[in-house]
Design a protein around this nucleic acid. Sequence first.
DNA 1: GCTAATATTTAGCCAAACCTAAATTATACG
DNA 2: CGTATAATTTAGGTTTGGCTAAATATTAGC
Lengths: 225, 225
Amino acid sequence: MTQDISHNIQDYLKRIYEITRSGQKASTSQLAQVLGISAASVTNMLQKLSKSSPPYVIYHKHHGVELTELGKASALKILRRHRLIEQYLVEKLGYAWDEVHEEAEILEHALSPLLENRIDAALGSPRFDPHGDPIPDANLNMPNMQQTPLTHLAVGESGSVIRVPHEDPQVLRYLEKSGLRPGVQVKLLSRTPYDQTIHLQITGKNEEIIIGPNLGSQITIKVDD
Amino acid sequence: MTQDISHNIQDYLKRIYEITRSGQKASTSQLAQVLGISAASVTNMLQKLSKSSPPYVIYHKHHGVELTELGKASALKILRRHRLIEQYLVEKLGYAWDEVHEEAEILEHALSPLLENRIDAALGSPRFDPHGDPIPDANLNMPNMQQTPLTHLAVGESGSVIRVPHEDPQVLRYLEKSGLRPGVQVKLLSRTPYDQTIHLQITGKNEEIIIGPNLGSQITIKVDD
DNA sequence: GCTAATATTTAGCCAAACCTAAATTATACG
DNA sequence: CGTATAATTTAGGTTTGGCTAAATATTAGC
Ligand SMILES: [Mn+2]
Ligand SMILES: [Mn+2]
Ligand SMILES: [Mn+2]
Ligand SMILES: [Mn+2]
């Protein structure tokens, strides 16, 4: 079905998937930024991906790209491997949750279908990775959670953490220290008026956790009824 | 110490190490054959590896290459990862011994030092891989077994298998079926005069095992006193 | 020791992905 | 609505590691 695809292209497709998740197209500059390369290089690759047969993306000149079905399936395949690897490293090899993303970013391109299956089986087909991100199943179906950014919580409201951002080890170590991991229940104590920094408390704990607006919008929760 | 080295170069160095183990230099055509590329491409790479600073190989124009100390250390590092991975896949993920080489050939290039350590620790610092090949330790010291090709056994003599060739799944399945794995004791029953095919028996078993000279020279044993 | 066969190297090319600088298009706002 | 700024694309290069064909060196057999 999918013929062989280079490591680079796998990363492009994964990034495009992440950006286009929320509806909008992925722009040249967004991709250049997350991939850490020049905009000209991105344009080049997007044109190539849109002209291949079959194409992986639909290219809207000057207006970004979206994935074709093939592109989406390819992206989900890599995302599945990425998240399974993260879970495996934490569960089976004693990694901390801030150490796994970088490893997975490399290993995801080196996994055979057989190894993917063995890892999945060894973990009992896990549905979430260490940061709370859903793992697409073997048919690439993605559990579609409805989730709200932590910053949308009203003062006094509470909810339980679904996922935290996975890329920045420093952030992850801060969250670890605060106890803010997927599953815990938090209550919004207050919000500063100008810069929208929020103060939280984990149910059953006393410390106050301070989260800036950038980080807060990346953490998602399920609001309590 | 070693600056970053491409996947391709890692494979070149590993192959040069394997060929030069037994003293001779590695020739252009030998490398072309095992790497599955043209001789001209090999020449190109060997010149590059000999001209880099510091150099990885010593290039004897028209007479093959040998590894520098740096080249040897780089090769051993990859060999360590390759063999640790093979052992891990068999031990921890239920792979058969004929399924691991191809996986390891890819994964060896994707392992970080941390993951190498974790795998080593999870296995209790194993000294041999599933095919009986020694695994260099963390300081890249290689257990130097003295071993004899199976074909050197005299009729009536016996010895215990040390290692079997690891690359060809078909061969491995044949050996598996015959019970010829590292550790078992074998006795040479007879040798055909012209083509040097040998007939063996495993101690405690009845079946006769037939091994051709190509395969026989790749299996090594420790001859019983 | 010469010569034919074999092995190796050189020369010239190609594809994948990157780059910078210049040109073009889109957008935002006065 | 026109123009300045920002985003994107085009043009022209580079590096890495392949390739084939042609030239040259080595080796083996007579
Ligand atoms: Mn990740
Ligand atoms: Mn990646
Ligand atoms: Mn192997
Ligand atoms: Mn390899």
